[in-house]
Simulated scan of single mutants.
Amino acid sequence: MGRSNLMGRRKLAAVARAIAEVQTPGRRRRSEGKQAAVLDAAQALFLAEGYEGTTVDAIAARAQVSKRTVYDHFGDKETIFLRVLQRVTDALVGTVRTAIDEELAPGRDLREALLGFGHRIVDRAFASSDYSAFHRLTSRQRPVPRLPAAVRDRPEQMLAERFAELAAQGALRASDPGVAARHFTALTIRSAQEATADRLDEGEAAGDGSPSAVAEQIIADGVDAFLRAYR
């Protein structure tokens, strides 16, 4: 009898949970809104104060939620940091996917395509987002939680996949598209990103030596060097 009652209570609890999930879309939206507020607050604080200098109390205060709410949704500061990194990475992946489809299109002049791709990534993914700041945060400070390599490397993997297609079409000589993608990124995007960040940190004025002009020249030189090796 006792066992039957226990099974009955478990079934009722399962039904109640299922009903709650179906009948509370408003509660679900409020929960998602709180999660977004916490991530927005955390991102701003991590960029301003660094990982070690940011506390869960500060995140909760900035997000205007209780500390308990932060812990209920995310568990701890490391998880929050990784979720913020994932969100930044997801935005970058979306930008890279669009740039590959629109700039590295079949039949387009290869140099023109690579120049367009490089400028698109530097101008839209780095200059107009928090990606550069988070790149510095994760690469220069220790210890800082890191996303799995497969997640971090996804943008370069997508570029390698397109380089493999270009190699199959005879547009590139790339026996290892992954290596070619890393070489291209190092010669163009990463070099332009680092130079731009350094000049912005130094507060240089616009002009012929402005960060955008420097990045443009780095990308052009990098594309030419890449094509000399791979075409």
Results as ranks from 00 to 15, higher is better:
2 G>W: 08
2 G>L: 14
4 S>G: 11
5 N>K: 09
8 G>P: 05
18 A>N: 03
20 A>Y: 15
20 A>N: 13
21 E>W: 13
23 Q>R: 10
26 G>C: 07
27 R>M: 13
27 R>A: 15
27 R>G: 15
34 K>W: 10
45 L>M: 04
46 F>M: 07
47 L>V: 02
47 L>P: 01
51 Y>N: 06
57 D>Y: 12
59 I>F: 02
62 R>Q: 02
62 R>D: 01
62 R>W: 02
63 A>T: 03
64 Q>R: 15
65 V>G: 01
67 K>N: 04
73 H>T: 03
75 G>K: 03
78 E>Q: 13
82 L>C: 04
82 L>S: 00
82 L>F: 02
87 R>D: 11
89 T>E: 11
89 T>K: 07
93 V>P: 12
95 T>H: 10
96 V>L: 01
96 V>S: 03
97 R>T: 15
97 R>P: 13
98 T>D: 13
99 A>G: 08
100 I>G: 04
100 I>V: 05
102 E>W: 06
103 E>V: 06
104 L>T: 03
107 G>Q: 04
112 E>Q: 06
118 G>F: 05
121 I>R: 05
128 S>G: 07
128 S>L: 14
130 D>F: 07
133 A>D: 02
136 R>Q: 13
136 R>Y: 15
139 S>F: 07
140 R>M: 14
142 R>K: 12
142 R>V: 12
144 V>I: 14
146 R>T: 14
150 A>S: 10
150 A>F: 07
152 R>V: 12
152 R>M: 13
155 P>K: 05
156 E>L: 09
159 L>D: 06
160 A>I: 05
161 E>F: 06
165 E>F: 10
166 L>W: 04
167 A>E: 03
167 A>P: 06
169 Q>A: 15
170 G>N: 10
170 G>V: 09
171 A>G: 11
173 R>I: 11
175 S>D: 14
176 D>C: 15
177 P>V: 09
179 V>W: 10
182 R>N: 11
183 H>G: 06
184 F>K: 04
188 T>Y: 07
193 Q>I: 10
194 E>T: 01
195 A>R: 01
198 D>T: 12
202 E>C: 05
203 G>K: 07
204 E>G: 01
204 E>L: 05
207 G>N: 02
209 G>V: 06
211 P>L: 00
213 A>R: 03
215 A>W: 00
219 I>F: 01
223 V>T: 03
226 F>A: 02
228 R>Q: 05
229 A>P: 00
230 Y>A: 04
